[in-house]
């Protein structure tokens, strides 16, 4: 995913579990959401953490998730939601909107 994704684009967070420093929370991997903001391009924490310069910089998005998508056992209200900043290399197209 290179060009900035449009607002509202349905995405899925990669269900990947590599070792090392990662800023994509475990609980959101594999979950479907939609883009609510493109925040700009930022150094990649996965290389910055090891003394590298973080290039290539990664587009960073705020992704909106329905709580019911993230937690099958969510006890709350249907509209409750979560928004998480996720770098583009953790996002893949989701096909259908959640």
């Amino acid at each position: 995913m290179s060009a900035p994704l449009a607002l509202g684009t349905a995405v899925r967070v990669r269900a990947a579990y590599p070792p090392g420093h990662i800023r994509t929370p475990f609980y959101v991997r594999g979950k479907r959401g939609r883009i609510v903001q493109y925040c700009g391009d930022f150094g990649n924490p996965e290389t910055l953490a090891y003394g590298h310069d973080g290039t290539p910089r990664q587009p960073l998005y705020r992704v909106h998730f329905a709580q019911s998508e993230v937690w099958p056992d969510y006890r709350g209200v249907g509209r409750d939601s979560l928004e998480v900043e996720i770098y583009s290399h953790w996002l893949e197209p989701a096909g259908d909107a959640p």
Binding site: A15, Y17, F26, R29, W71
Partner: peptide, 12 residues
């Protein structure tokens, strides 16, 4: 079972 690191505690 996927690797979950100790600091990554959201939802526990």
């Amino acid at each position: 079972t996927p690797l979950r690191r100790h600091h990554d505690m959201g939802g526990l």
